[in-house]
Every structure is written in structure tokens, then in C-alpha cells.
Design a protein around this nucleic acid. Structure first.
Length: 343
DNA sequence: AAAACGTGGCG
DNA sequence: TCGCCAAGTTT
């Protein structure tokens, strides 16, 4: 029937293109390893391939199997993840590894439903693992697929309202065979051809049937609501060095922003502008000439950096040697603080 | 269901 | 320069 013909046409053309144009990525292999599929998919959540590559290789080198990762110390996992962002992923990753290694005999479940019960695995990731690692015809719908499908069907309704429609169409296109390749092919197409700003429709394998291109609206799709401007927050952060040259740091609570990561002691980060400097304790404080500016997902942060020399361990912190600082689970914003102090 | 949750690169 | 964006999940 016609519906089947369209589906076959789409996936056949896409897979032919994929066979000739698939990107070579460290987590792609002839025989899929569910552990590596899972690890890469968690890292790739809202994160570019370029950013993930080195982290993936580092994790596989440090922990070649799910049992190795499960046996690791949480602090080691957090510091290996440091810089990659969305740190709840690292906490969930380790929790998931412990469940799979400890309760599931080291095997990831081979169904979307069971996969989704594990921490850090949601609708997209469960489908991606099911398709790529277990060859289950699941629709892995990520940002790429949203874009490709929106354009192919010229869906003018904006995201996220169009999600159900996109899911319906994408599900119909998934082939019974090579569903893992199909999932990756769709994402490769979105990443290299059907790109957000200036898609290369002239070399797209689906260009003949793409309604968005035919109607001259591909680049404008998918439509999205404009984002509000981010608010700013301000604070003071303290570089406290003892006479041995060690620096005071502390570990953030295992929840919320930068949860489980190492930080230098700081004031609260307030929305009010120009907060007064309050010394956390009596000492000779010197203000650094440069500020630290950093943008998180939902606010800008401006930190004033203060430096002092003091030997008393305070503020529920610990002293670490300057050389050991690089071994800490320091998020990017804290590495910027180091940059300002050492400048 | 809307908001929280990082970072770096690019046009 | 700065808004947009990247293989989303959790609460």
C-alpha cells in the first residue's frame, strides 16, 4: 500500500546515503556493545559530538565495562565528567551502572520500557539504545529528528506543540530491519545535511520528496518560540591559600546546580546587583582585577574574585595542593576562577 | 507542566 | 557580540 511505499522509500534512500556517508565515531562499531551505546547516548544528551569524543574515550579507558564503572568511586566519576556539563547525568550514570551491574547481572534490558526505568534514561535514550544496541524498531526522536521530520512534512506548527505529530510521522518511518542504522542515519543527516541554519538540500538524499524544501520553507523550520533573555546573578568567590600554598575547596551537595562538583567557597549568587562584599572571615582580602563571567542554562553569573592567605580551615572546606587542583571535579565556571587568580 | 539543569562553538 | 544550538531527563 502507499503508506508502506513511502516508508520504504524514505528509509531505503536514507540507508543508502548512510552506507556511503556515515560518520566514523568512537562509539560506533560492527558489533554493538550496549555499555558503550548507553555511555555515548548519555554523554550526547544536549551535547555536541565534538565535545563528547574525548570524554567517551577517557571513560572507556578508565572503565572498559559496566562492572568497572559500577565499582568506581563516585568522586572519580564526577571528576572524569567535569567540564562536560549537566552533572546530574554523571550521578545518574553511576547510579545506573550500579543497578545494571548489581541487580541485572551486568546486562542492560533489551526493551524500551525496562530501559526507561533506569536513572538518566528517558524516552529518547531508551529508544536509541533499543534500536542501536538491540536492533529493536524503536523511534529515537531527538532534536535532529524533530528538524528533519518538521521539514520533510513541512510542519508549520511550532515546537513543542508539534511533538505528537512528529512522533507519529517518525514512528511510521522506522523500518523493521536495520532500525539501529536508521536511527543513526537520521541523526547524521540532521547533523551534517539538514542542519539548523543553512541546510544542504542540494545534496540531501531526501530532497525530491521534502515538502519543506519544495515549499521553500525548509530553513525556517521547525518553528520555535523565542527565548526570554536570561537574568543575571552576582556573587563573591574566595581563593584562600594557606602557607603551604594549598587552596580551600568544598564539594557541593549532590543535587541542583553543579551537584556533587568541587567549588571554591563563595557567597550566595543573588539576583540583586552589586552585592556588598562580606568577608567570610577576618583576613587581608585582595580583590582580583578581573571578574569571572559565566552563562548557565538559565542565568548569567558574575563573580568577583577575592584572594587571601590564611591557615585556618573554615567554612566546612578542605585544603588541596595547587597541583592536585586539576584532579578535582571542577566545573568550567570554577576553572575560570583559577584562570583569574593565576592570570 | 514548566522550570531546572552546563558548556563551547558558531554565524 | 550574542542568541542559538547539541543524540534530553527529572521534578
Amino acid at each position: 500500500m502507499a503508506e508502506q511505499g513511502l516508508q520504504t522509500d524514505f528509509s531505503d534512500k536514507l540507508l543508502v546515503w548512510y552506507d556511503a556517508n556515515a560518520r566514523e565515531l568512537p562509539w560506533r562499531m560492527k558489533t554493538p556493545d550496549p555499555y558503550k551505546t548507553w555511555l555515548s547516548e548519555i554523554m550526547l544528551q544536549q551535547t555536541t559530538v565534538a565535545a563528547v569524543k574525548d570524554y567517551f574515550l577517557k571513560f572507556v579507558s578508565l572503565w572498559p565495562t559496566i562492572d568497572d564503572l559500577a565499582a568506581a568511586a563516585t568522586e572519580d566519576v564526577m571528576r572524569a565528567w567535569a567540564g562536560l556539563g549537566y552533572y546530574a547525568r554523571a550521578r545518574n550514570l553511576h547510579a545506573c551502572a550500579k543497578i545494571v551491574a548489581g541487580e541485572l547481572d551486568g546486562f542492560f534490558p533489551a526493551s524500551m520500557e525496562e530501559l526507561q526505568k533506569l536513572p538518566g534514561i528517558g524516552p529518547y535514550t531508551s529508544a536509541a539504545i533499543a534500536a542501536i544496541a538491540f536492533d529493536i524498531p524503536a523511534a529515537a526522536i531527538d532534536g535532529n529528528v524533530d528538524r528533519v521530520i518538521s521539514r520533510y512534512y513541512a510542519i508549520e506548527e511550532p515546537l513543542p506543540q508539534s511533538k505528537p505529530r512528529i512522533r507519529t510521522e517518525a514512528t511510521k518511518l522506522v523500518p523493521q530491519k536495520r532500525s539501529g542504522d536508521f536511527a543513526q542515519a537520521l541523526m547524521d543527516l540532521g547533523a551534517t545535511i539538514c542542519t539548523p541554519k543553512s541546510p544542504s538540500c542540494d545534496i540531501c538524499p531526501l530532497t525530491d520528496e521534502c515538502s519543506g524544501r519544495i515549499r521553500g520553507m525548509a530553513t525556517a523550520l521547525p518553528r520555535k518560540a523565542k527565548k526570554e533573555k536570561l537574568p543575571s546573578r552576582f556573587g563573591h568567590i574566595y581563593w584562600i591559600e594557606n602557607s603551604k600554598g594549598e587552596v580551600l575547596v568544598r564539594t557541593r551537595a549532590n543535587k541542583g546546580l553543579l551537584g556533587g562538583m568541587t567549588e571554591f567557597p563563595s557567597s550566595d549568587w543573588l539576583r540583586a546587583k552589586r552585592p556588598e562584599f562580606e568577608a567570610p572571615f577576618e583576613s587581608e582580602w585582595k580583590k582580583q582585577s578581573s571578574l569571572v563571567e559565566h552563562t548557565f542554562t538559565h542565568f548569567h553569573l558574575e563573580l568577583t574574585v577575592w584572594k587571601t592567605r590564611n591557615d585556618s580551615t573554615q567554612l566546612a572546606c578542605r585544603f588541596v595542593g595547587r597541583e592536585q587542583l586539576s584532579d578535582e571535579a571542577l566545573p568550567s565556571v570554577m576553572r575560570k576562577v583559577i584562570g583569574v587568580v593565576l592570570d
